[in-house]
């Protein structure tokens, strides 16, 4: 995808996050928006999947370890063709295949059911280990939140990934600095994140999570590291609520849906941004 196409996809993802959480009257827009550019690049450019054949055996895998950001993942999957974009409005409703947190048996394109923090990364380790055992050139991607790093299981899994030299595993961390109760540094300081992952035996790179050249650099670093026996960690420096002015850097928007007025304002901001991209 071109820069322009990636930017437009990211805006569509943000639009889907606002519309779906508004329709559900609940959900997690803050972390979905901070990860929107990562999602756009991952599905627009990086990952080998086939929206027409979601269960293709030799596809790459993605595990959303921070499962509450399902609205971001769903908006991405819909916009790259896994299911109709209109269905995003069924989010969290009775009978919908778009559950509050990802369900691998209901939603096309979802590779693992997640939602309980710290557990997705372990399943990604299992997939990466399985791919290696089977001799398949499959890459496994997983996205964690920075608040999630407080879970001890994250470090069990990281230790496992390094021990088994899972250089086909790409662990991204969305470092937006905020969690439910406030700033991550105040609730439970997870810094220094880079040094922790390095000490656990990973190859670590830090990039601007809202700049596609930088995100591309992160994935190039992952591919360059393949064959070197270390799992890759991409630390994405992001802004929670990115792209919607009143949600940016507000912990309160972690798990709250926009009302009618807020939706209108948010969509107007995204439309203005879209116009700028289209005319550039």
């Amino acid at each position: 995808m071109t820069q322009k196409e990636l930017q437009l996809l990211a805006l569509k993802i943000r639009e889907g996050v606002l519309k779906s959480t508004h329709a559900a009257k609940s959900g997690h827009p803050g972390g979905s928006l901070s990860a929107a550019d990562y999602f756009a690049y991952l599905y627009g450019e990086e990952i080998h999947v086939d929206p027409k054949n979601p269960k293709w055996e030799d596809r790459d895998r993605f595990v959303l370890s921070k499962g509450h950001c399902a609205p971001g993942l769903y908006a991405t999957l819909a916009n790259v063709g896994f299911f109709p974009v209109e269905d995003l409005l069924t989010l969290r409703k009775i009978g919908s295949y778009l559950q509050g947190h990802p369900n691998m048996n209901l939603t096309p394109g979802v590779d693992m059911s997640t939602g309980s923090l710290g557990q997705g990364i372990s399943t990604a380790c299992g997939m990466a280990k399985g791919a290696k055992y089977l001799g398949k050139p499959i890459s496994v991607y997983t996205l964690l939140g920075d608040g999630e790093l407080a879970e001890g299981q994250v470090w069990e899994a990281t230790m496992f990934a390094a021990h088994y030299k899972l250089d086909n595993l790409c662990i991204a961390v969305d470092i937006n600095g905020l969690q439910i109760d406030g700033a991550t540094k105040d609730v439970m300081n997870t810094a220094p994140v880079d040094k922790k992952f390095e000490a656990f035996g990973c190859a670590v790179i830090e990039v601007d999570g809202h700049n596609f050249d930088e995100i591309a650099k992160g994935f190039k670093f992952f591919h360059d590291n393949k064959g070197k026996g270390k799992p890759t960690v991409i630390l994405l420096k992001t802004t929670k609520g990115k792209g919607v002015s009143f949600m940016e850097n507000q912990a309160g928007w972690h798990g709250k849906a926009p009302n009618d007025e807020q939706l209108a304002q948010g969509l107007a901001e995204l439309a203005a941004a879209r116009k700028i991209v289209e005319e550039a």
Binding site: R61, V63, I121, T123, G126, G130, Q153, Y164
Partner: peptide
Amino acid sequence: DRFFDCGIQECNLIGVAAGLSTMGLVP
């Protein structure tokens, strides 16, 4: 080659087993 020791980390062990099963293996 088919035995994976997880060390003393039972929670991760369960998650790894889940991931392996999605690759068509029977853990």
